[in-house]
């Protein structure tokens, strides 16, 4: 099978060296104690922290791509999403497809009007759902999700899980999903990477 994301000897100040590969359509879970380096792994893959090693997307090396293009294709969604404008739609990609936005909003149970909502009045759960929608509108090939359901109730958690699964299937994209929730781990299934002391220690199949 082709490798969508191929990572060799990835190393940062507090991480690695580690190897990792994601297949198209695959959702791989990342787990580990707090402070073990899960977020650092995602940040390094999004090229937000200095790192060395070989990282390739569809066989194309990262260094051959402009940083802007890389981060659109390899989307990092932090646990606490950042909002800087006054209204939600100020945070969307300039040329986003309206139809795609409506489709995604429907999946996470938010109305079309939410694009015009004031950021000031969003709940943490709404921020998290809209943060995912905004990242998906860039049509990334790889999703780096750092506890994307941390602020959500079970119903909305399942919605996010379905939305991400749906996106991966439709776009043949892949995701790394950091999760602490044992039940969620069972629901999501697939490969589980355990990270400890900045290294990938166990690779388990669920």
């Amino acid at each position: 099978m082709d490798r969508l994301l191929d990572v060799r000897q990835l190393k940062t100040a507090h991480l690695g060296p580690l190897d990792l590969a994601l297949q198209p359509g695959e959702l791989v879970q990342v787990t580990g104690a707090s402070g073990s380096g899960k977020s650092l792994l995602l940040r390094a893959l999004a090229d937000l922290d200095p790192n060395t090693g070989e990282v390739m997307l569809n066989g194309q090396p990262r260094d051959a791509m402009a940083p802007v293009d890389w981060r659109r294709r390899v989307a990092y969604v932090p646990a606490e999403t950042a909002w800087w404008g006054e209204r939600v739609d100020e945070h969307l990609p300039v040329d986003f497809a309206r139809a795609a936005a409506l489709h995604l909003l429907e999946q996470v149970a938010l109305p079309e009007a939410s694009l015009g909502w004031e950021v000031e009045r969003l709940s943490s759960g709404e921020k998290q759902r809209l943060g995912l929608v905004r990242a998906l509108l860039n049509q990334p090939r790889v999703l780096l999700l750092d506890e994307p359901t941390a602020n959500l109730d079970l119903e909305n958690t399942k919605r996010i899980e379905r939305a991400v699964r749906g996106y991966l299937a439709e776009e043949d994209a892949a995701a790394l999903w950091v999760s602490h929730d044992t039940l969620q781990r069972q629901r999501l299934g697939g490969r589980i990477l355990t990270i400890a002391n900045g290294k990938l220690e166990v690779t388990a199949w669920n």
């Binding site: 937000l48 802007v68 969604v77 932090p78 950042a82 860039n138």
Partner: peptide, 10 residues
């Protein structure tokens, strides 16, 4: 966080 949020959005 805002700056990195913008970077992550491309």
């Amino acid at each position: 966080r805002t700056i990195e949020g913008r970077l992550a959005m491309g």
